[in-house]
Amino acid sequence: MNFNHILQEIEKADPEVYEKVSGRRNILKSFGSKVALAALPIALGSMFKKAYGKTTGTVISTLQFALELEYLEYNFYHTGYNTGSNTTASLIPANDRPGFAIIESEEKMHINFLRTTIDTLGAVPFTPNGYTGDPITGNPYSPASYDFTAHGAFTTFSNYGSFLDLAAALEDTGIRAYQGQLPNLLANTNGVLTSAMQIASVEGRHASFVRLVRRFYNTPTFQYGNKPWITTNFPPSVPLQPNYMGEDNTVQKGVDITSLTGFTGYITPAAASEAFDEPMDEATVRSLIASFKL
């Protein structure tokens, strides 16, 4: 076995490998003729642990961020679902309640899934400000942690239309947040890359449901521009515009989608933007949810 050749291959695959360990010379020193052939796999294993093992911290903080978003979404739906539900006038009308019940229960499942995954990776799961329950098994409902009116800026729980606007924005932003975090999960430690995609697509279903309800809300027929998908950077309401910045992107992998041929002529900018959801970075997402947190 030519050990130098192995190092060359690693080097080709990852030019920065020596910055992650301690220089090629040191590797060669430690793996020189003194290392018995039988011990080579162990030595290699420890080298790679050194080079790539520290990514676990990034994975955990990424999952914590996801958990924070799931707490926010769950509390939003739980509060909305129970607003006025014991009276004749509930915020969410009877026709839409079963769908919102599914969404709320799936957000709760996401919380439980992320809590368990973070616990398995050896960290204490995130809890929102003012939360008093057990971080792993406690009831995730935490009314003291949120103000979904953003200090009176939105009539979230007193007007169903406002509730739907914010629901759509939270789901769409949730999708964008997950996509923005995928670069941190590429190693797929414990399958987290795949899990994150599996959660994001469930948020995609939620967004579609909420948007379809909005499409028919309070109009005689339907609102032509409101669709289950995001058209350019069109927001549900003007104050939610910042949640949609960048959604009008039409260039994917260096290819302008509007230069491609569709069913009739070139693909339109509207279709090109609808066909792809766009990632959003953590700092932007945090700035967008900040006003709902107490």
Partner: peptide, 24 residues
């Protein structure tokens, strides 16, 4: 991933107009 969530939007839409309140 960008395409997957749009497929999910499609799936939920088709499901929902077939049987109301069933995005999944």
């Amino acid at each position: 991933a960008k395409m997957a969530t749009v497929k999910a939007r499609h799936a939920a839409y088709s499901r929902d107009i077939l049987t109301a309140n069933t995005p999944s």
